[in-house]
Amino acid sequence: MLEPIIVLFTNVLLYLYGVLDNSMVLALVLLTVGVRAILIPLSVYQQKSQAKMQELQPQIKVIQEQHKDDPQRMQAELLAIGYNPASMLTGCLPLIIQFPILISMYRCIERAIPDTPLRMVNLYNTVYPSLFDNFAGLVPVERQFLWMDLAQRERLFVDFLPWGIPVLAILVVITTVLQQKMMMPNNTDPNDQTAQMQRSMMTTMPIMFGFISLQFAAGLSIYFVVANLVTMLQTAVVNRERFHWIEWSLPGGIASIPFPSFAAEPKAIPKPTKATIKAKSSSVSKAASDEKTAAAAPKKKKKKKKKK
């Protein structure tokens, strides 16, 4: 299913490698920047959607509390303040699209930097001959960069340690945390579900990408690091009007450091009046009435939960 993307990435990567005087690291950086550039419209939409959610969070919470026994009314009021749950899915789209791209990048790196005969045969059958004047001249593809073999797991061996240090995996974890922290609201409310979810993401995503970096080729880790840096730059540019400093309490309370944040500050939107609700909810009345039957069921369930 992903083969056409893998083939495309592999050819572009090798073309860049040839153009950049056989520097595979520079080629990887350029390909990553190119891929992220293509995804800019989607990720900008995602960041704006996320910021909007952050702004509306206090109002959503009030409405949910006030109308917990009347789902239909709650729905109408949520829509009235501009909160559409369906947009959450659309907001996740760039994140979901990243996974097939990530897999394609992994396969592309494995194929473009062959370290075994079978992979070399696969590479031969992957390249577009017309794209390269002298493909044989590009082989062997240079796999070494500083202490790293780009086709192998990266470890830095030093004399005084019996094991290697996974420098790239550490960089991946750090940049992933920083990138997420830039868009994370400084919310200390333990009951805020959105903040909880973001805190959870801030723990799981760096661990997941760090684990992948530990296990797979160094070239993939370079992709992660560059992609994180590009995303950070993009966040700073797109959300520049929201720039402010926050105090970041490091884990374990070791220290608190100033950190640039581009997260939206929750806005105190005036509580919607009955008139505005009526006006805005009229456009969604059909959808609301369709859900009338469905809305009755959770009411009962809610009561059951309360008993528990």
């Binding site: 992903l2 749950p85 899915l89 996740c92 979901i96 859900e291 469905a294 809305a295 369930k301």
Partner: peptide
């Protein structure tokens, strides 16, 4: 609320399937 929780479940499911797909691939 049912719609919201259903939505959350859908998002969670998509996330889990995607992560599994990623790790498998």
């Amino acid at each position: 609320m049912k719609r919201n929780s259903s939505l959350r479940r859908t998002i969670l499911l998509i996330g889990v399937i995607t992560a599994a797909f990623l790790l498998t691939a």
